[in-house]
Amino acid sequence: GLPPGWRKIHDAAGTYYWHVPSGSTQWQRPTW
């Protein structure tokens, strides 16, 4: 699974990851 606080988001551009507490997003899968 993903580290705490991360969500996987799907949209028209593809899949990305959202860090809910900080509001940051990234294309790379977050690592622990």
Rank of each mutant, 00 (worst) to 15 (best):
I9V: 13
W6K: 00
L2D: 14
A12P: 10
R29S: 11
P4T: 03
V20S: 08
P3D: 01
W27E: 12
G23A: 03
Q26L: 07
G5Q: 02
W18L: 15
G1A: 13
P3W: 02
L2M: 06
G5H: 04
D11L: 09
K8V: 15
W32H: 09
S22Y: 03
P30G: 04
P3A: 04
S24V: 15
K8H: 08
S22I: 03
H19R: 00
S22T: 13
G5A: 01
I9R: 05
Y17I: 00
S22F: 02
Q26S: 10
H10S: 14
W27F: 13
H19G: 01
R29P: 15
D11H: 09
P30I: 00
T15S: 10
G23Q: 05
T25D: 04
Q26M: 07
T15Y: 09
S24Q: 15
P3V: 01
W32M: 10
R29A: 11
K8G: 05
T31S: 11
W27V: 15
P30M: 00
P21G: 06
W32A: 10
W32V: 11
A13R: 14
T31E: 13
T31F: 07
T25S: 08
S24W: 14
P3G: 03
W6D: 02
K8L: 12
W27K: 15
L2S: 03
P30A: 00
K8E: 15
K8A: 14
L2I: 05
P30Q: 00
D11G: 14
T15D: 14
Q28E: 15
W18R: 07
G23V: 01
Q26T: 09
Y17H: 05
A13K: 14
T15M: 08
P30K: 00
T25R: 13
P4H: 06
T25N: 06
T31M: 11
P4K: 05
K8N: 03
Y16G: 07
P30W: 00
Y17T: 00
S24H: 15
D11F: 09
G14M: 04
I9A: 06
R7S: 10
V20D: 07
W27Y: 12
W6N: 01
G5V: 01
H19A: 01
V20L: 09
Q26G: 03
T15R: 04
Q28A: 10
G1W: 10
L2K: 10
Q26N: 05
I9N: 01
V20Q: 11
P4V: 04
S22N: 02
I9K: 06
Y17G: 00
W6E: 00
H10A: 12
Q26V: 04
S22D: 05
H19S: 03
R7K: 11
T31R: 07
S24E: 14
W18D: 05
P3T: 01
Y16W: 11
A12N: 10
K8D: 05
R7Y: 11
T15W: 10
P4D: 07
V20K: 06
P30T: 01
A12H: 07
Q26D: 05
G23W: 04
V20W: 13
V20R: 04
S24L: 15
Y16R: 08
W27T: 15
D11P: 00
W27G: 09
S22V: 02
P4Q: 05
T25I: 15
P30L: 02
Q28H: 12
W27L: 15
S24R: 15
H19P: 01
W32G: 09
P3H: 01
R29N: 13
Q28G: 09
G23T: 01
Q28K: 07
A13I: 11
R7W: 07
G5M: 02
A13T: 14
V20Y: 12
W6H: 01
I9W: 06
D11W: 08
G23L: 03
P21M: 06
I9M: 13
G14K: 08
H19L: 04
I9E: 04
W27H: 13
Y16N: 04
I9G: 04
G5Y: 05
S24A: 14
W6A: 02
S24K: 15
W18A: 07
W32L: 10
H10N: 12
T25W: 13
Q28P: 08
S22K: 02
K8P: 07
G14F: 06
T25H: 11
V20H: 07
A12T: 10
P30N: 01
K8S: 08
T31I: 12
V20A: 11
T31W: 06
